[in-house]
Amino acid sequence: MQSIVAKDLTKQFGTFTAVNHINFEVEKGEIFGFLGANGAGKTTAIKMMSGLLLPTSGDALIGGYSIRTESKQIKKHIGYMSQRFSLYNDLTVFENMQLFGTVYGIPPKELKQRINNSLEELMLLDKKNSLVASIPLGWKQKLAFATAILHRPEIVFLDEPTSGVDPIVRREFWKLIYQAAAQGITIFVTTHYMDEAEYCHRISIMSDGCLKLIGTPDELKQQMGVNSIEEVFVKFVNR
């Protein structure tokens, strides 16, 4: 079953084509890496897929809902986390999760249960009433992720989720991602860490608004005859 189906998705700003007829499908439970140089059109594409921006032409089905006509439905079925905006520093861990959970309409009793379970899994139960400002960056990122999937979305968009965190935390973070994917949540992730791209099941590379390459990391490396995704990327963009 497909979680994301993009069909000729296009966005123009005046005469500038930010996203140019992109087509791809992402399977349920897949970890899909979305790479590209700065300004390649990634952000525009993600905005359209999360129902924030209407495409100029084409369509995408997100969890079966059209981004043209059912953007309200889409918002209920996706989660979003980015490095820039994650949690409120002046609220406690619990208050943050409660806030976002309530926004998604989880009933209070159920919400409390889910928050407790989620904190227990992260082994952060003792930090429940600590201010977010007081906990280390790596933990914040893990919490932000847990919060983004609290309402059990079908798809979660991660926008450079691990930039700047230490490598141990990064690996722990990726374990959470694998866990979520194993539970059937589709992961759509952008990153500038090319080694992180290797963690994905499949990756795509965008350039000048077009989706130029798509495949598993091994396939792409073989196709380009190189040993790492970084080389794939550099070789491809310079071509």
Binding site: A37, N38, H192, M194, V234
Partner: peptide, 10 residues
């Protein structure tokens, strides 16, 4: 190079 794409980084 934080937040810079791999090509520009290189």
């Amino acid at each position: 190079t934080t937040g810079v794409d791999p090509v520009s980084r290189k």
